[in-house]
Simulated scan of single mutants.
Amino acid sequence: MKNFALIGAAGYIAPRHLKAIKETNNQLIAALDKFDSVGILDSYFPNADFFVEFERFDRHIEKLKRAGVSLDYVSICTPNYLHDAHIRMALRRGADAICEKPLVLNPWNVDALKDIEKESGQKIHTILQLRLHPSIIALKNKVAAEHKKEKYEVDLTYITSRGKWYDVSWKGDESKSGGIATNIGVHFYDMLSWIFGDVQENIVHVREKNKAAGYLEFKNARVRWFLSIDENDLPEFIKEKEQRTFRSITIDAQELEFSAGFTDLHTKSYEQILKGNGFGLEDSEKSINIVHDIRNLTISAAGVKHPFLNKQI
């Protein structure tokens, strides 16, 4: 049984980590969040010590270490811009870090973490759960087996409506979240690069506060992508169903069905990490580079545009 601490216990994603820690038969000994709405802990680890101040949490971890209680892992579910600092804290305390994506916001942060990882002897793991989804694994194997000479034609569309709260929260602040492409798109970019290889071209057609679109060319695919949190971008047939989310990936005009199979992917991620097979810094680099470039590239009219940019939604 390994000892875990959790930073960001009141967040949206925290319950998936709590469930994963529990289902892999490990123990949460301490949790931290500036907000105290963490009754979810009662469902998993009611005896975990809880703190609302980082300093007292850090002091508690130090005291446990001196008392001979080892901290094996720190799970990090905090806002994106804090990941780097919280990873460093975990490694300083002699624990491995398990961090939600994006691992960091900028490519140079990865280089610095590589040095700290070597100095500490600890490991940094990231949650790239789409790589463990059965449909995505099947697609990767299919692409590898086909040895297709022509590039695959891919359309990625993800619209997940968000209310007014979004702009007020840290997610609406690009300096904290990395913007829309980072916040809701980074796991898709990781999936695409994992399946289709290195990026050869990155063009941004739209980059607004609530939506972004562009063109990515990988070694084995041409990808037109569109991401939005604006409900007005939803297709009419989705609006008619009174649904607020639309997700679609087509490959050579064939829809990739992966709507099911998400419920246990964090647990699967933890199982692999505990076996020594987790995804590390190198695995995160491609998607971090992609979203950094999307955030900083000049808007261009070049490249093939996503269908949603060429018609009235």
Results as ranks from 00 to 15, higher is better:
K19S: 12
I21F: 06
K22M: 09
E23Q: 15
E23P: 04
T24Y: 05
N25D: 14
N25A: 09
A30N: 10
D36V: 09
V38T: 12
Y44N: 05
P46M: 01
A48Q: 09
F50K: 08
F54E: 14
F54K: 15
F54N: 08
R56M: 08
F57R: 08
R59G: 02
K63W: 04
L64I: 05
K65W: 03
A67E: 15
S70F: 07
D72E: 06
I76K: 02
N80H: 15
Y81H: 15
L82H: 08
A85Y: 05
L91R: 07
A97I: 02
K101R: 11
K101S: 07
N106F: 09
W108D: 14
W108N: 14
W108V: 05
W108R: 13
V110D: 04
L113Y: 11
S120Y: 03
S120P: 04
I124H: 07
I127Q: 07
L130F: 00
R131A: 08
L132P: 03
S135V: 00
I137M: 00
K140N: 12
N141D: 15
K142N: 04
K142A: 09
A144Y: 06
H147G: 07
K149E: 14
K151L: 13
Y152E: 03
V154R: 05
I159W: 01
I159G: 02
R162Q: 15
